[in-house]
Amino acid sequence: MKIQTLSLTLLLIIFWLLNSGLFKPLIFILGAFSVVLVLFISSRMKVIDEESQPLHLTKNIPAYYAWLLKELVMSNIKVVSTIWQGHLQLQPALTTIKMDHLSDMGKVIYANSISLTPGTVTTDVTENSITVHALDKSSITDIQSGAMEARVRKLDN
């Protein structure tokens, strides 16, 4: 059995228990049946692999999220103050930024982190570049500085 199948099984069991919260024999039997059925369908769909179960990330992800939360709060303050500005003056920008090779998983984390922070949205991801639409030009400069990319890269390896 692949390690990914094992981790998915564990995830499904935790998900079931957290939702159910009932500890009765019948519910346990039904739960076991459900987990097996989902595993069967998932393997037929071929969705159990290192992409859907990124186990290599688990070690470093908490530190990354803590850093992302800080970024999130900062950019939220910026966007909210723009929204409540009496007189709207915007400098939106659409820029393609070069980046070095990242794994598919790395790309997803990078692109979603950019989209998650208000003020920037990833519009395209290719092998060696990422296109970003920003509410304000300064956000583009922040991304170009590469601080986030470096962190994702550290996570990815």
């Binding site: 059925l37 989902v38 969705v47």
Partner: peptide, 10 residues
């Protein structure tokens, strides 16, 4: 997808 499936069964 697997989580949606298990949620459906739940």
């Amino acid at each position: 997808i697997p989580l949606i499936l298990i949620f459906g069964l739940y």
